[in-house]
Write a protein that binds this DNA or RNA. Sequence first.
DNA 1: TAAAAAATGAGACAAGCGTTCCATCTGCAG
DNA 2: CTGCAGATGGAACGCTTGTCTCATTTTTTA
Lengths: 288, 288
Amino acid sequence: MSLGGATMDERVPRDFETLRATILERRHSLPKRIAQIAAYALDNPDDIAFGTAASIAASAGVQPSTLIRFAQQLGFDGFTSLQLVFRERLRERNSSYDERLAALRAKAEEGAGHRAIFDGFVAAASTSLNDISRTLNEDHFEDAITVLAKAETIYVLAKRRSYPVASYIAYALGKLKIRNQLIESAAGLNAEMIGFASPRDAVIAISFSPYAPATIEEARVISEQGVPIVAITDSSFSPLAQFARVWFEVAEADFAGFRSLSATMALAMALTVAVGEKRRDTGKKRKP
Amino acid sequence: MSLGGATMDERVPRDFETLRATILERRHSLPKRIAQIAAYALDNPDDIAFGTAASIAASAGVQPSTLIRFAQQLGFDGFTSLQLVFRERLRERNSSYDERLAALRAKAEEGAGHRAIFDGFVAAASTSLNDISRTLNEDHFEDAITVLAKAETIYVLAKRRSYPVASYIAYALGKLKIRNQLIESAAGLNAEMIGFASPRDAVIAISFSPYAPATIEEARVISEQGVPIVAITDSSFSPLAQFARVWFEVAEADFAGFRSLSATMALAMALTVAVGEKRRDTGKKRKP
DNA sequence: TAAAAAATGAGACAAGCGTTCCATCTGCAG
DNA sequence: CTGCAGATGGAACGCTTGTCTCATTTTTTA
């Protein structure tokens, strides 16, 4: 009976943040060696998650038994249960973005207010940025810059959903005083516009599934003229990839049926500025 | 000697990405049971990191010994060494959002090279998203949705740097079958276009410092016609704010002189979708 | 189809694990 | 200084772990 009472008194912290708070709170009332471990645990949470009781105790400069007393003092029944909290923390942190996005999607679907919609788009954008910064192929990036920096005129080709990116690229290239041509024409003169492109020029083409047929067709024509294409698309099966000299695979997360543009946008900005920088450098070298 | 040769032949993947690539590459040449574990490992990397050989084998539906053969086939000398790679992955991924951002920014600032430019733009975009999700005023957001949902036609007004956002809004509104008009005209008929707007319509206007004079002027004219304006701009001193019924302050981080658009973009997407949703709901209520 | 080779399953085993127990030490009240 | 309770160290224990071995099954080859 009294044992049952005792275990009910001590609320066992099940998540890392609660545990952390509990430790900080009791910090000053803990015995010396136990406090020593407490400090080590908060400083090296990863070691607690992965290490063995023996290795952790050695690193912290205490005996393994002290480690267990520490766990018990916090209400756990042993080191193993305490370690689970530290492991769970790693699991959660790792998948937090995807899970958060999934949760938001579910929330938004059941109609949980407009704030959820906003949060969803922010989460989708963050996820996309995370992904691209992990997966960007640096060699492709360098190749693309080389191709574009050599071009006399950079043509920019994108329709529909990708069009905003194209219009931004055109704006930024203009600001950098790099000659460029956005392939769009209210008068339906795209074909003629493309006809002017030569192998000394280059194209940035952007298209995601479902690929705008016009983009694909224009990319085909322009690549047959020998103009090198730098493509931003969403998979190696993209019809755009086959025409491209260099292509980037960008996986954008979506929300409410609308895919983010943040990763594509960041890549586009980086490409543009890097090309500008490369031109300045080679310009200096030519006429020093 | 022959042993030395053997170990040198097999390059042991030390980081998770390499390991993943290796597995995917050999996927089809692996024995059935081994392939079974390979698939499980890529699907449940967390389980591999934390589980014991026995528990993982049970979850994957194989014998523990098969797990070890899998590890050896990849060049590891046992399950334990393979597990270390999966653990290292969690350790690295764990670095929190802010830490990662700081690392990116540091790299971008000190490190020359083109990768640094890319990192810089990703960092700027992430920072902007962080900021906006902290500072977005929920009441303003609701007000803006109310104003826009009531509009017969939504006019979209933005030039230069903000134009990509406007073109995206127009695209998304179109997809949601919401009548809209992007205020741009190759023929210089903007004034006439604006003239059609009535108080039963609404405007989304976007402009950041240095404010495009045309945007400000058009916003002034259209507000004098009694058309409510929802503005996205960068400060309360913005000339756009004074004409607006509702306005949002969006602080975008910049890199290399180019400001991010990610926060503005996320807000624009959220506004658009939320308006679409609100219209569906009130539509249902009106004629059930 | 028969023989050889590769893959697999299942049990054995030593090493290392978390935990417990008890002797010793430390700090403090009387 | 003595007595005592809590804190600590270190050895011992039982159990689970990863790995190895070997018999059996499956696949490949001739």
